[in-house]
Write a protein that binds this DNA or RNA. Structure first.
Lengths: 252, 252
DNA sequence: CGCGGTATTGAGATTAGTCAAGGATTGTGG
DNA sequence: CCACAATCCTTGACTAATCTCAATACCGCG
């Protein structure tokens, strides 16, 4: 179950066996969360949720009553780690499908960060990646709906491939069109229409909870998708990093 | 000139006199950048730009040729500190007005982070704040244009007040409506129309490069502006922080 | 089989974009 | 200090994108 988590963190840079084991130990005793439920209820700032399986999202409910997702949370994603407390208090974390979640004590995470440079670096990387992705979503919001959806599908494909939840050109996606609408900031009806347009163009299809990209290169080009913002290259060897004990160093 | 910079960083938590002096020393020898010019040209990853005066922005140019801002950079803002290198390579930093900028050697910043816990914490805070703001911009993108602009004006007022560039209800804003359009993801013409609507509603005016909020409470309510996402409360005393030497601790 | 949620489609309303023109403002050089 | 150029602002008319409402079809599940 910890596979996706480790797989993802190792993108930041190599982990030692010891670090891997410590991280793996964090993933014991998961709890189920059923679809459409909030994963964090109340002000549980002392625990950091880690998604082990299922699709979740960070979101906010606007005054008009509509919801806007600011990011998806996929298996292996550590959520609201740095933005609980005074940060991101207004954002909620909800399960889109039924999920398996582990609540990691924040203090335990702190210990690991203080002890293991690799873990410190990895968690730094997670945060910077979030920032990069958030900004890409802002940019994506200025594209027309069709490109916007194309871009999102490419992002999902790429991120799910990383954790072996997608093959070369398709992935299971048991999420409603309404959820995607809230992720894109457009209406559910329009999602449906745009989806048809992509199907008609021979770019992608979505049926039986499975999204299939018929023309991967074509969809990426159309959606102006450049995976650079996903920071899969990790912190990079060219980055100045005076000491792995200093998380900031990793990214600066 | 370092006033805004220090003022801002101290929001994360108190700095010692020594830390303050070190930070102040970073702001020597600024260079001018004229309006409409990129502040960082080429791949100058070894230097971190700090805006001392003027309005700048992080932005990206889309395939269609239009530009989208992902954030403003105001006096005192340290830019692309953590997202240069592999992070945010596709984002550019441009001056909206003529600016005064200092290029801080990245290595020097690293030294300070490793040496001073207060500085380490402050720079961590800067990053998390950026994330929080980016997500708020995503949310704002789903509001209708009028509310979107209202929200932005509230954000600007609040952020500029912090560095004494705004009084109770107005601030100088020598930026074009086109720039605001790119920040909101709407057309310049529509910005103008929406502006008129706000004026007609008696909420705000913009003339002579000065934005005046006629009804601060009204505009905030209309734009659904809640300053929580700006993280002005800093890292908070309630946050677990095992050691100030560990930047991650501050925010987690 | 029937029910509830979801998907799909159409028609009309609304929001926002584009194009175009004229007016205002700013900056510059004589 | 003025004239000019350039940019920016403002507005109107039209177009395009998207939303809302509503009806129907589909699907999984009990």
């Amino acid at each position: 179950m910890a596979y996706a988590f480790l797989r993802k963190l190792e993108r930041a840079g190599p982990l030692t066996d010891e670090e891997r084991i410590e991280l793996q130990n964090l993933t014991l005793n998961p709890r189920p969360v059923s679809a459409r439920q909030d994963i964090v209820t109340g002000d549980a700032v002392d625990r950091v949720p880690l998604i082990l399986s299922g699709f979740a999202c960070r979101y906010k409910v606007l005054q008009a009553g509509n919801r806007r997702l600011v990011s998806f949370a996929l298996p292996g994603d550590l959520c609201s780690m740095h933005d609980a407390g005074t940060f991101g208090r207004d954002l909620r974390l909800g399960a889109l499908t039924s999920c398996s979640v582990v609540d990691i004590p924040r203090s335990r995470l702190m210990e690991l960060i203080s002890t293991y440079p690799g873990i410190s670096r990895a968690l730094w990387w997670v945060t910077l990646r979030e920032l990069s992705r958030a900004r890409e979503w802002i940019v994506n919001d200025t594209r027309p709906a069709e490109k916007r959806l194309a871009h999102l599908l490419c992002e999902l494909l790429t991120c799910l491939q990383l954790i072996d939840l997608a093959n070369e050109n398709s992935f299971k996606f048991p999420v409603s069109q309404s959820d995607v609408a809230d992720a894109l900031g457009i209406s559910p009806v329009h999602v449906n229409r745009v989806l048809r347009a992509l199907r008609t163009s021979g770019l992608a299809t979505w049926s039986n909870q499975r999204i299939t990209i018929l023309d991967v290169q074509g969809l990426k080009a159309f959606g102006e998708f450049d995976p650079g913002y996903l920071c899969f290259e990790g912190c990079g060897a060219d980055m100045p990093m005076p000491s792995t004990q200093r998380p900031l160093a990793c990214a600066s």
